[in-house]
Design a protein around this nucleic acid. Sequence first.
RNA 1: GCGCCUGUAGCUCAGUUGGAUAGAGCAUCGGCCUUCUAAGCCGAGGGUCAUGGGUUCGAGUCCCGUCAGGCGUGCCA
Length: 550
Amino acid sequence: MIKFKITNDLNLCLKNLNLKTNDKFVIETQANEEFGDYSSNLAMVLSKLNRMKPYELAEKICAELSKNKDYKKCEIAGPGFLNMTLNISVYQKLLKDIIEKNEMWGASEAGIGKRILLEFVSANPTGPLNIVSARAAAFGDSLCRVMKFVGYDAMREFYINDAGNQVDILAESLELRLREMHGENIGEFPFEAYHGEYVKDLAHRLNTLEGTRVLLLADRERTEHLKDFALEQIHEMQVKSLEKFDVFFDSWVSEKTLRQQGVVEEVLSYLAEADCTYEKEDAIWFCSSKFGDDKDRVLMKADGSITYFVPDLAYHLTKYQRSFDVMIDVLGPDHHGYVPRLKAAIHALKYPEEKLEIIFLQQVNLFDSGEKVKMSKRLGTIVTMDELVDYVGTDATRYFFLDRRPNSHLNFDIELAKKKSNENPVFYCQYAHARICSILKKAKKDKISLKELNPEMLKKLTKPEEITIIKKMLEFPSVLVSIADSREPHRLAAYAYELAGMFHRYYSKYVIVNKKSLVLSMGRLYLIMAVKNVLAVSFKLMGISAPEKM
RNA sequence: GCGCCUGUAGCUCAGUUGGAUAGAGCAUCGGCCUUCUAAGCCGAGGGUCAUGGGUUCGAGUCCCGUCAGGCGUGCCA
């Protein structure tokens, strides 16, 4: 919002000088004091348009801008950068806005009117959620929270692959475990079956509820019953894990339901109508290679069953039919080979490809005491999301998953996440919040009541650290907008960390509560209250708690 | 072989979408508690941004090549 003001001020200067603009110049915040508070590349960007040398143009703008009382200084540097320093009274006034907006500071209408569908986690319903799902949950949920906060109409969706081959294997695994429980010799447990302990737990539960009745059913009925039971149980288990992680989906879409609605046939006929299918070796193929995929893909196998691709494509078409402006898929690292055929089909069916955005999360490695934790699906030594969350806590887990760019591999240091010290960034951030709460309490105890905020209090805030903190908080709204637009929530973690650091440094240098100078104390208390609010908002958007005491 | 991702300090990672002298934390070394939470603060050292070219006023960022690592490349899901 401050950049907005500066942009306006600069445009006014251009207008007064009868100069042309193309709105391509940018305002940047400057960390280096030498270059002022904010700088702009305006002169370089507009020099050709106005047939002037950058430096000359910059000189004119500077002279004009200096007439504005809000600006203390305007200098030209390098090839023609405009370095602007604002009067501190501007910041003092803006602090009042931050405080008045309270927990709505940062909220905006940047995305107003845009409907967004965020699909993430969408784990197979064949076992407990793993740590990649946890990363997806932290990422998708926070992105959604930020998008909503800046005005988008965003919703979370989970696609359940509750049909297909893997579900048959699940039913078979459950049956074997049930038989085994009753002393039957099942031989060696099949390689491709689900080896996790949870299958045994499911068998126990089924046995407690229904005994061995299911084993007496006819083949087909028995499989269906086992499937339904396992799917329902595992779904519930996954929902619980997510809720514990403070992630709630607005919508669940079941592949099985889609199939029952006949969408599979529909998709096949659409593709056939578009003249994109052919028969070869008793199978039906989609000529995806005509649309950029490496090779053609099977839609219907020789045995008459359907591949994973068909219902998934159907699912994506339902997304289009629900008229979103943008649909975002958050996928795991093992899916990137799959996207070309999906995009190919969407293209072939003449749906707008650009509305579908795919974000890949790279794999997660767990490290404990410097050692990589070895995980194997086959050996059943997968660390589940619940285990991780129970061990290090929701706050640390969410923060650590959010802290890194989505498309880079993530090394999760369990030992560090558990540490309650400055080494751990989560605690560093939360500690700042708790500290502020503690100071506010102390002020109350000293009977410093925060009366109505008045200009005299704000005028006391003149230290460079104070102005730096205000500047940082002024950036918050635009940081959130850029997080939403770039789909990069990791920047929120960085922002909170930086703001917390600024506060810690400020705290150690200055006394905030001082009975001898009441007006100053009140000014500073307002400042840290604002910091507390901004921290609390960023924590909320990250899904971590804002402790009052630590 | 082909495709996607990655390569920045000893380690883990940022880098404001192409801006000025590339930044944090950890680790190492040295300081700061009779005063609002030391779960904190201050200081020091540490770099050929994998590499070679190109684009321009300007490149860690964009384009091409090379090298290295990860993943993918089923009539699995």
